[in-house]
């Protein structure tokens, strides 16, 4: 119990003191995970929507595969990206290992299946309602996909938040490809792992509470934006 109290007071004093190291770590976490979600959205939204609209052989198997890949273990993704980006790997010449870029790549691979799979479901539901009218209006395939994505934008925003939650909370991938280098690739989760390994459990848990706080702020902002959008649409 005293550990928990200590963690809570550590979290509060961390936030109040606005420690510059902590701010740097928070900003890097947001930048890396935010970038990963944007990239995942660019790939996952159209991909998920296309699978949601199209009917083709092997589609069910593809959907099962896509849904299953939402559960990719971060540490496995991290290991794969490490082997690709290692100097002895096929993309070693890029020199990306142990940089924020490598962390963005790993998290993008983690988040894209989540965005694609949840988008597929949302668009499939919508297309049952809208696809026939759109076809009868003579809309082309890209136009239909774009319209459905637009109509589903509110639930797709939640999809992106789910992806962001996955990215900001994972440690397995970023610690392998980023290396948890101070001031370069240290993010919230790897900092928590480090303090745990040093046995400073109150500080580790305090950082964890800060991370939870960030997640609440991000989701609160998204909620607010959704409501503004909904009011504008009404």
């Amino acid at each position: 119990m005293s550990d928990l109290t200590a963690a809570f007071s550590t979290a509060v004093s961390l936030i109040l003191s606005l420690d510059s190291d902590l701010v740097e770590i928070i900003l890097l976490s947001l930048r890396v995970s935010g970038s990963a979600v944007v990239l995942a959205a660019l790939v996952g939204l159209p991909l998920g929507a296309a699978i949601g609209v199209l009917r083709f052989r092997g589609r069910r198997a593809l959907v099962v595969l896509l849904n299953a890949s939402m559960g990719l273990p971060p540490v496995v993704v991290g290991l794969l990206v490490y082997l690709m980006l290692s100097r002895s790997g096929p993309l070693g010449w890029l020199g990306l290992l142990f940089t924020p870029g490598a962390m963005v790549i790993a998290q993008t691979l983690l988040v894209t299946p989540i965005v694609a799979a949840l988008t597929r479901q949302a668009i499939e539901d919508l297309s049952e309602e809208y696809d026939e009218p759109l076809r009868s209006l003579g809309a082309s395939f890209p136009q239909r996909v774009a319209t459905l994505l637009y109509e589903g934008r509110l639930s797709l925003a939640t999809t992106l938040l789910a992806g962001f939650g996955r990215a900001i909370a994972e440690v397995g991938a970023v610690i392998i490809v980023g290396g948890n280098i101070a001031h370069v690739t240290r993010v919230m989760t790897t900092a928590i792992a480090l303090e745990t390994s040093r046995g400073d459990l109150p500080l580790a848990l305090g950082l964890g509470l800060v991370l939870v706080g960030i997640a609440i702020v991000v989701n609160g902002c998204a909620q607010w934006m959704q409501e503004v959008a909904r009011r504008a649409a009404a």
Binding site: R31, V32, G34, S35, A36, V38, L39, L42, L96, T99, P100, G101, V104
Partner: peptide, 8 residues
């Protein structure tokens, strides 16, 4: 995409 690739 440009924002996302900035860290790279």
């Amino acid at each position: 995409a440009a924002i996302a690739l900035a860290p790279l």
